[in-house]
């Protein structure tokens, strides 16, 4: 696996923090139904991308990658959910935890080339784009 896929980690974190900074002043305008979907998509997508990239960069450290990805998913889902109210925190927490535990296994099973990671990145970035357009319209 080439080493340049590590830059996608930076891309993921940057897009997630940009989305958080974009959503923060508009959080009173967004209803709880869209808020639940925002928490699930943002936390789960960040955990999925980070787990797939990290297990391909360090294939011999399964336990450390699993713990760090699950913690990142919990924190990201909780932060995106904490924009709205406590039940969106719960939804984002459980979805980020599940995605963070599953994603190192998916990444280890599909570690032939960088094509899979490119498509995962396109998927996650388009998810963020959809989420931001729907938050912009509301």
């Amino acid at each position: 696996m080439p080493q340049w896929i590590g830059w996608f980690l930076l891309l993921n974190l940057t897009s997630a923090s940009m989305a958080y900074l974009f959503l923060y002043p508009r959080r009173k305008l967004i209803g709880f139904h869209l808020g639940m979907n925002i928490a699930m998509a943002a936390g789960g997508g960040l955990a999925l991308g980070t787990g797939v990239i990290l297990i391909n960069l360090f294939p011999l450290h399964f336990i450390e990658v699993t713990i760090s990805t699950a913690l990142l998913g919990i924190v990201a889902g909780g932060l995106f959910g904490a924009l709205f109210d406590y039940q969106t925190v719960l939804t984002g927490y459980i979805n980020g935890l599940m995605m963070g535990i599953m994603s190192p296994m998916v990444g280890a099973a599909a570690s032939e080339g960088p094509m899979f990671i490119l498509f995962i990145e396109v998927f996650i970035l388009s998810c963020y784009l959809l989420l931001l357009t729907s938050a912009y319209r509301s």
Binding site: P59, L60, F62, I63, M105, A108, A109, S111
Partner: peptide, 8 residues
Amino acid sequence: CGLPADLW
């Protein structure tokens, strides 16, 4: 999963 068999 494609990891080495005696990893842990």
